[in-house]
Design a protein around this nucleic acid. Sequence first.
DNA 1: CTAGGTGCCTGATTGC
DNA 2: TGCAATCAGGCACCTA
Length: 276
Amino acid sequence: MPELPEVETIRRFLQPTIIGLTIKKIDILTPKSFVGNPKLAEGQKIIDISRHGKQLSFHLSNNLILHFHLKMTGQIILVPPLSRGGPEGGGVSKSTRVIFYLDGGEILFFNDQRKFGWIKIISNDELAESQSHLGRDLLDSGFSLKYFTSQLNSRRPVKLVLLDQSRFAGIGNIYANDSLFAARIHPLAPANSLSSSRAKKLYQSVLEVINRALSRQGSTAADGKYLLPDGSPGSHQYYFQVYQRAGEPCPACSGPLSRIILGGRGTFFCPHCQKL
DNA sequence: CTAGGTGCCTGATTGC
DNA sequence: TGCAATCAGGCACCTA
């Protein structure tokens, strides 16, 4: 599932490769995956690609924006000219929802097995409105320790607060679990119960975990569908500390890792190292 | 403010 | 072997 490191990896891949290209034609295979009139984007040049949290934006020459959310299983695959780009290359497949034909002969596929993801055509104002519901992005300079601690003002379990996109944009289930382990904080601990030193430790852990995952081009988990736009996997999945490792030995104390359900999501931690 | 539930989806996994 | 039930989860939306 694409979280901040994965979406940022996609952005960095696409930035040098499709900026300046014009969208010749858009084919919509699954109507619910695309909101708005595709004709508004056809003939427009892609002038910039930005990201806030897990959302990606292609800024077009007519000032409109193609706004993406990959949700659970969304992929953006770029097939270069003269390449066949079959399913083995991550290109067109039975989960292809939208196809963008670019003027250099490149083809960009939006694939999404579960159809939770979407692409919308929106204005700058609509983008601002949408982002007003999101907290600071973890890679933004405004994501300070002060901001982080100010957002821990809830008695809800700290893991649920970390996952709250209106507070911290970009953290998903994988990195929430591993960040809490890195800080040795129990996922059920009320967010507002953390001492300032533990909050600082969590802040540093979140940034460390996110940046490590980013340096490894994200995580292609066993049940995940994340791929880079060239169809290759990330490698951070080999460095998970607790995520999806229930029953395996804790990397720190070798005791068995636990799994509970919190907020309807699998939650992994070490009951020995992460005390309530 | 909070907790809790539902719906959206489909491929993989589990149970019989 | 086949087929049905269960599971995975980001997020909007609903109720209490």
